[in-house]
């Protein structure tokens, strides 16, 4: 990849495969990340809905976030009259509790990185996307440039922040803190190609067992259908992406839009200049007005 900012010949692309089918929702990853990276608690409030998730979303101080989904057939509307009504639900259907540990996707086509005007966001030798807190000036452009709603600017700190894929640990040969803490190996860390290969075999096994809703989000897609060129941190999901707050398709908005938008804009600029000139040329003629 040409944009790699730090070169080390022996380094290879490293990534995450987060297999949500084995996640138990313990949030150890979320806490381990805060601990390793010295991130403050955001403080949270009791959230309506959202099950056991009270931190809500990824943010400038939450670089791993565990989302909770409760899946049961929706209840019929119950009339608000005591005594207790029979809701008419199947009490034998236990439903299921789905957890997903979300993180920065370390996109191959990273919108944040494309957007960053200061070079704070770089591609490392592990082909991860790292935000250098000592360079970032908090311009905030990376924030809407991320199609996954990952990076955010902290209101009080002023800088943007997101997962570094534990760049400091990787350099020491240590696996990232969240993966280290994960008791179930839901978060698997390793060389990207190995992960993709294993993840594909995992999907095959789940399909064999009848779990045909299992799919990979961000890896193994047909050419042209990749998410943001392929995600360095990809997921095995069982529900539609939106249920986890993920878009069904994504691309670096810069790579997608900059050229057409610029052509249109510069074209318009030329047209405008011409228009102005034309007005002046026409200015000599025509009826005299009291402008």
């Amino acid at each position: 990849m040409s944009e790699i900012a730090i070169r080390r010949p022996e380094a290879q692309r490293m990534g995450f495969f987060t297999d949500t089918t084995v996640c138990i929702g313990c949030k150890a990853c979320e806490v381990a990340c805060k601990q390793w990276n010295d991130l403050p608690a955001d403080g949270s409030e009791f959230r309506k809905g959202g099950s056991y998730d009270h931190t809500g979303a990824l943010g400038a101080n939450t670089w791993r976030h565990v989302r909770f989904l409760e899946t049961t057939a929706p209840l019929p509307e119950l009339p608000a009259i005591p005594p207790v009504q029979d809701g008419g639900w199947d009490l034998r259907d236990p439903g299921s509790w789905v957890f997903m540990s979300d993180v920065c996707k370390h996109c191959t086509h990273a919108g944040c990185l494309d957007a960053c005007p200061t070079g704070a966001l770089i591609r490392t030798e592990f082909e991860t996307v790292v935000l250098q807190p000592d360079v970032c000036n908090g311009c905030g452009y990376c924030v809407p440039a991320c199609p996954f709603g990952v990076v955010d600017r902290d209101h009080d700190d002023g800088r943007a922040a997101k997962c570094t894929l534990c760049y400091d640990r990787l350099q020491e040969g240590l696996e990232p803190a969240c993966a280290k803490a994960c008791p179930t190996d839901s978060i698997q860390f390793g060389p990207y190609d190995e992960l993709v290969e294993r993840a594909q075999r995992r999907v095959a096994r789940l399909h064999e067992k009848g779990a045909t809703s299992a799919y990979l989000y961000g890896a193994g897609d047909a050419p042209g259908e990749e998410l943001a060129g392929g995600l360095g941190a990809f997921f095995l999901l069982t529900e539609k992406p939106e249920r986890y707050g993920l878009p069904a398709q994504a691309e670096s908005p810069i790579q997608e839009n900059v050229v057409p938008a610029t052509v249109a804009a510069v074209g318009a600029g030329l047209a405008a200049a011409a228009g102005v000139a034309l007005s002046f040329v026409l200015g000599g003629r025509g009826k005299r007005g009291r402008w």
């Binding site: 999907v203 095959a204 799919y215 990979l216 989000y217 193994g220 897609d221 992406p241």
Partner: peptide
Amino acid sequence: GPPPDGLVEAASRSAR
């Protein structure tokens, strides 16, 4: 072994 041809791609496509 590797998954049957196209399985992974199709699974993702149908979800997305």
